[in-house]
Structure formats: C-alpha cells, structure tokens
C-alpha cells in the first residue's frame, strides 16, 4: 500500500542538522495493523505525519498506492489524503463548537457528500459505536474514552483505506484503552489498514507487526 524509501527529514538547530527521520525505509501492505514503538522524540509522530502527508520530508521517495507522493503538488497530496486516510489523535482534537453528530459529519461536508447520505452514514457510525444518545452533546460533556470514540468514528466516516493513530489511548485509562484496541483489531479484521504509534507494549501487541524507532531510524522490524 505504501512505501517509504530512504526518507530523511531534518531541522537546522544552531547550525547543526538534527535528523528527525534518518534514512528510513518502510513498506506497509494492505490489511496490515502496524504498531510503531519507540521512546519520546524517536520520530514516531513525525513518521505518522509524513505518511499522512501533513508534513514534508527533505529527501527520499514516498509511494502511496503506486503514486509518487514526493513528486505531487500539495493540493493533489491533500486530495489523496482526504480520500484515503483517517487520522486519530492522542488529544482527540474534537471541534469544541460542534456536537458529536456534527464532528463526525464534518469530513463528509468537506467531501461534498449529499445531505441524505451524510445522515445515513453518520447514523450508522453512531449506531456502531453505541453513541446515538450522545449525538447532540458537545465534546466537553463527554469522558475521554467517549471523546476518543467520536474521534475514531470521525476518522472512519470517510471509509479510509488507512487509519493513522498517534498514541490513540495515551490519555485513557487501561480499560478504555483495551476497548479502543479491541475496536482497532476488529476494524483491521474487516480490512482497514492501521498504523498506530504507541508507547505501550500491550497496545502494540494488538498489531500484526511492530517496528521500533530510535533517532528517526527503524532499529527493529
């Protein structure tokens, strides 16, 4: 599904070049559930952002579904991202001013999905995550776990081929974590490719494969 080939990303800090990603090579197949592990600052988030095309890299080649991402214009990249990738954040990042329903609906609005289809898709999603009763609540009225459920529902609403999750359970207690991970495993079984960054061995264990990052390079595959 995606191939990263000799990816470098650096920042200049006081004349010295600090590598965030250092000659990173990664291939992810359709249907995989990949866990990325590594200490803080090892480049997990940067890698996810690069894969999500939210962040640029300085050298190397990136192919997504056969498209050479590194050669594309930002607009086209955004289009590919919008079409294929759902992103889940550690801090949920729900829109405070929107209700649960509206939060889930937002990506569909940007994809110009028509009204009746939006309604049915959001309704399906609310059903699936058992949050129908909360659809008119605002994020601050929900618990952390519930907020993350909404975050996941929002990522899934566009039927993405790939879900990127940056420490999705970092702010949750262990029971809530487990529920989210079960959900991920289920989604994966249904065919969604998932890449998650995590600190937790037990979370990583839900994945089909785990890589370890250190200083921007893969040290263990």
């Amino acid at each position: 599904m995606l191939t990263l080939d000799h990816i470098y990303k650096w920042v200049n800090n006081g004349g010295r070049r600090v590598f965030l990603l250092n000659d990173l090579n990664l291939k992810v197949e359709q249907g995989e559930f990949l866990s990325i592990m590594g200490p803080s600052g090892s480049g997990k988030s940067t890698l996810l952002n690069v894969i999500a095309m939210l962040d640029e890299f300085d050298e190397g080649e990136y192919y997504f579904d056969g498209e050479a991402i590194h050669e594309l214009k930002p607009k086209k990249r955004t289009a590919i991202f919008n079409e294929n990738i759902g992103f889940i954040f550690q801090a949920y990042h729900l829109l405070d001013d929107l209700t649960v329903y509206e939060n889930i609906e937002t990506p569909l609005l940007y994809k110009k999905v028509n009204r009746s289809e939006r309604q049915s898709r959001v309704a399906d999603m609310l059903d699936r995550f058992n949050i129908v009763g909360k659809k008119d609540l605002f994020p601050h009225q929900l618990s952390g776990g519930q907020q993350q459920l909404v975050g996941i529902a929002r990522a899934l609403i566009i039927n993405p081929k790939l879900i990127l999750a940056d420490e999705p359970t970092g702010n949750l207690n262990s029971k809530q974590s487990e529920e989210i991970m079960e959900l991920f495993a289920e989604l994966n079984k249904e065919g969604t490719t998932i890449i998650q960054a995590t600190h937790s061995e037990s979370n990583a264990a839900y994945g089909t494969r785990t890589i370890h990052l250190l200083d921007g390079s893969i040290v263990k595959n």
């Binding site: 999500a52 939210l54 607009k75 955004t78 991202f81 919008n82 992103f87 954040f89 990042h93 729900l94 829109l95 405070d96 001013d97 937002t106 990506p107 940007y110 994809k111 929002r154 566009i158």
Partner: peptide, 16 residues
C-alpha cells in the same frame, strides 16, 4: 488555531 489544524486534518482545504 486548534480548530483550524483539526479541520485541515479532517480534509478541509484552504478555500473551504
């Protein structure tokens, strides 16, 4: 700023 960031990751273009 946060709202704008989230919207962008949800697929909003600059135009929108």
């Amino acid at each position: 700023a946060k709202e704008i960031g989230i919207r962008k990751t949800l697929g909003s273009g600059r135009k929108q």
